[in-house]
């Protein structure tokens, strides 16, 4: 079941209800009666020259919603912003996806969109960092870069003529995500921002908030741009690498310290709690939730319990009322 599925005890239940009521009263002040359901008429005051955007259609000269959501107006444009829906890509969005298929010269990624997205071999940097034409050999070696079921981070490049969605990964920050957890939440909870990659230094983890509602929490990896490095220098390194025992090195590579693993789990649980409650997912909100859990000395698994859920809701209500007070 979606949403809050916890057995709340007698004191927790009214507390949660009170917190949610408070949230409701806070939001209803700012934006009353803007929510519509399918086939509701949207009142338009100036009749002439209304631009009907997404989620609307015309019926007998009236603007009618085709989605459940919130009516938004920008000058003459009227559209309905859907809440729970699949991801709608926009050019430049940073997304996290999973490889479904390795096809000729491309990977197909599941990104919670109505079709699979396409990542062309030519629209990503090769791991050796050299800029060159992709050869048939590169094509054969595609599985060494990404395999099926790998989790990948990329950027939306745009729609092709045939309607397919193309991605690109032209920087070292994009690419395969390893040693962490992938969380799937509703995309409407993730807001588009300047920064979607976050390095939480005190925990040694990386947080990628994909616009498509896929969230990656993983061990921090140092993003180094291979292209800047001297070519000759690197080949030397490679030679020295091959001489040392590969087994030991491999072990070292796959090892994640326990503390970092716990941090990953704690952060992931924070995201779970917030998305269960239906709160917006931002780094600040996640960090606050993580801090709250660690100041309360809660175990990681206790974060998914009823008490923490209520506490998070109460704190969010507190935070939002502070915000509106400051504005007022």
């Amino acid at each position: 079941m979606r949403g809050i599925q916890l057995s709340l005890n007698q004191t927790q239940k009214p507390r949660l209800e009170r917190a949610l009521e408070r949230l409701e009263s806070l939001s209803s002040k700012s934006n009353p009666n803007a929510s519509v359901t399918v086939a509701d008429t949207i009142p338009v005051n100036y009749e002439d020259g209304v631009l009907k955007g997404h989620g609307t259609s015309e019926l007998d000269g009236q603007v009618v919603a085709t989605l459940c959501g919130v009516v938004e107006r920008v000058n003459k444009l009227v559209y309905v912003r859907a809440l729970r829906a699949r991801y709608k890509p926009e050019v430049g969005d940073i997304i996290v996806g999973r490889v479904m298929e390795v096809a000729p010269k491309r990977w197909r990624l599941e990104i919670n969109f109505s079709q699979d997205a396409v990542l062309m071999l030519s629209s990503m940097n090769l791991p050796d960092g050299v800029q060159r034409r992709r050869t048939a050999v590169d094509e054969l070696n595609m599985r060494t870069i990404f395999e099926e079921n790998d989790v990948i981070c990329a950027e939306v490049r745009g729609f092709q003529h045939d309607g397919s969605l193309h991605l690109q990964a032209r920087s070292q920050k994009y690419g395969k995500l390893e040693r962490g957890q992938l969380l799937t939440i509703s995309p409407y909870l993730v807001k588009r921002r300047k920064q979607h990659f976050h390095h939480l230094e005190q925990y040694g983890i990386d947080l990628v908030l994909g616009c498509n509602g896929f969230i990656w929490v993983g061990e921090h990896v140092e993003a180094k741009d291979d292209m800047v490095e001297d070519q000759a220098n690197k080949s030397e390194q490679q030679n020295s690498k091959s001489t040392s025992s590969p087994n030991l090195e491999e072990q070292e590579q796959t090892y994640t310290p326990l503390e970092i693993r716990q941090n990953i789990c704690r952060t992931a649980n924070a995201v779970r709690v917030l998305s269960n409650l239906g709160f917006n997912i931002t780094v600040e909100a996640i960090m606050e939730t993580v801090n709250l859990s660690s100041t309360l000395n809660l175990d990681i698994h206790e974060m998914l319990g009823a008490e923490f859920c209520v506490l998070t809701a109460e704190r969010e209500a507190e935070r939002r009322s502070m915000l509106t007070k400051r504005k007022g």
Binding site: L20, L23, E24, L26, S27, S28, S30, N31, A34, S35, V36, T37, V38, A39, D40, C68, G69, V70, L83, R84, Y188, L189, L277, G278, F279, N280, E316, R320
Partner: peptide
């Protein structure tokens, strides 16, 4: 059904906040 949907949409919206 309309009532149920309206209630659900409102709830999602106010929980999300701004």
């Amino acid at each position: 059904i309309r009532e149920v949907l309206q209630e659900n949409t409102k709830q999602l919206e106010y929980r999300r906040g701004v």
